[in-house]
Design a protein around this nucleic acid. Sequence first.
DNA 1: CGATCAGTTGAGAATGGTCAAATTCGGTGG
DNA 2: CCACCGAATTTGACCATTCTCAACTGATCG
Lengths: 244, 244
Amino acid sequence: MLMLQDGPLTRKLSAFVALSGSDLETLDRFHRRRRCFTAGYELIHEGQKNQSAYILAEGWACSYKMLSDGERQIVDFQVPGDFLGLRSVLFRTTDHSVEAITAIQASEVLASDILEGFATAPRLATAVLWAASRDEAMVVEHLVNLGRRSAEVRMAHFLLELGARLQLVGIGDKTGFDCPLTQYHLADVLGLSAVHVNRVLRHLREEGLVAFQKGRVSFGDFDGLVDRAGFDTGYLDQDGPLLR
Amino acid sequence: MLMLQDGPLTRKLSAFVALSGSDLETLDRFHRRRRCFTAGYELIHEGQKNQSAYILAEGWACSYKMLSDGERQIVDFQVPGDFLGLRSVLFRTTDHSVEAITAIQASEVLASDILEGFATAPRLATAVLWAASRDEAMVVEHLVNLGRRSAEVRMAHFLLELGARLQLVGIGDKTGFDCPLTQYHLADVLGLSAVHVNRVLRHLREEGLVAFQKGRVSFGDFDGLVDRAGFDTGYLDQDGPLLR
DNA sequence: CGATCAGTTGAGAATGGTCAAATTCGGTGG
DNA sequence: CCACCGAATTTGACCATTCTCAACTGATCG
């Protein structure tokens, strides 16, 4: 038997579906085309056609849309173990862009890899669809965040969600996590100005709930923060998919 | 050959993929379990398990999440030809609720219907996946709407999107469409207060761009409204799916 | 040692929310 | 047909959150 990779994607999927040896081999074949990109590189461009997808192995990325007035709305961040542009590989054009936030390593996955892989490893297929469904649930939760929560609650909720995602792939724990985002990134994902992000962070820090400083998020009072945010992990830990 | 139904879903899917006779027969079998629900009935409840999905044939519905403080964020409205809870049928639990806005007629679709149907009619499968992908793109666009657009632009954008969707299923045209939504519905989808919704509507009406009155949306100056909203239909009319 | 970029802070302005009170409208019972 | 009810809409006054502009600090980097 081969030495199989044990990357963050494997770790994430295994938390929800018990993958067989053949599933793991198929998943391993997804990682043949390893690529490196520098921080700021735009991997996927809105409106472009016939893109490939990637599995992020190392570093952070974000998906976003630009508006005509030059403003940007970040839809979501991607951390190790996440897919980049999975939907753009199944449908010809993509409706948003994806760029690297840090220097990243990612495996390029072709549409044919996915289609063939799913045919031979149905259990893997359902696991990947589960992950895609979770991503969609997160987008919906962001929508609620933007529509109905105050800046401070929004920030608290966002940091908790990010923490939960990172724990799942073994990065960070209850005390906090390393985080390469700038306050401008937070502004663009939360629909706030960078100035207000700064004020909100200060307030949360002064209350001893979370500190966001020098590339690290430190939870000072985890339960207090959960309470403040009204954070319910329900949308993150769904049951496994239908086909067992 | 049977007399096949020609509902709004058929109409919508046919606009993007040429469905064969056998696709249409399979699609027809999705419509065997016709149900009626009164206005306000909650078809799908957040957190519930093993739900079925529905195809909306007549009337309007909305999907939403409630917050702990009693506020509501509507994620999207569903109009004839849309699926209700498609994702909740493939994954065990659903992360949001769906309720009927008007009295509605909908066909109940079981997970087994979908899986069997997709096996025998792959072209139909890709068409349905295309529709699901379009729905996802709309959620992302709503996210951008909430995060980065002013109340007035948000409203304009929303009404234009709704108009475009309804035209596709043959309800309404460039002059406007009938619309059973209250200003409270608009507030809950746009993340505004009902009072402010009213003010924004008055302003748009006074400028002659759109009127929202007595259950009808009338476009007074369609091009002017498109301009005001920065509306770009790109995310709605994607190309057909990969498999032709 | 400039230059640049992220972060920080203050002052004033604007967008949108809250509260409260009319007004309109569709239906419903008499 | 009319009176009445409740829901939806409309408007005004005031308030809160968040934005914008502008300046300043501190770190990093060539």
